[in-house]
Amino acid sequence: MIEPRLKIATCSLAGCFGCHMSLLDLDERLFDLAERVELDRSPLTDIKELGECDVGLIEGGVCNAENVHVLMEFRARCKILVAIGACALNGGVPAMRNQYDLKECLEESYVRGMGLVNAQIPSDPEIPLLLNKVHPIHEVVKIDYSLPGCPPSADTIWTFINELLSGQAIVLSYRQIHYD
């Protein structure tokens, strides 16, 4: 009997897709991975609806209402939720805007920005509303594992996925843990 493949979903919230690039950096190991897991919703599959999954990998913190919605959906549908990268863990570079009021940030970009014509702060209802502050994801939902790094290296991600899939305790070597 062929064992059912584990279902993995991924998403990038307030991140830069760098962690997803690091995942792609697995190179030929991706073939091995593809035999063992099935990708559900992910920027790599373009599946829009999240199904019931075994593992959810979250890149990025939460900076707007849509991020919160997606994150809570991932928590509800994934048995194991993993925070990947500095932004998911502590807000990262996007959270540097927490030093300013949201109004100041928006005005700096959309009102005082250079070369603007008819400068105005966007208010289209289709654009998710920004939160007052950027938050790491553990402040919104329970997180089962955290992988630091900006981004975590492909080796770190590989060690993690491998050990998780084989049911071992996850042990990262010194060089696989870094915050930058």
Binding site: L89, N90, V93, I143, S146, P148, Y174, Y179
Partner: peptide, 24 residues
């Protein structure tokens, strides 16, 4: 914000956190 800090990699706070295995 380690990714945006010039001292990253030669920072004692970071190094001690690595040593103790702080992930998040």
């Amino acid at each position: 914000v380690c990714p945006a800090c010039e001292k990253s990699g030669a920072c004692q706070l970071q190094a001690v956190a690595y040593y103790t295995g702080m992930l998040a």
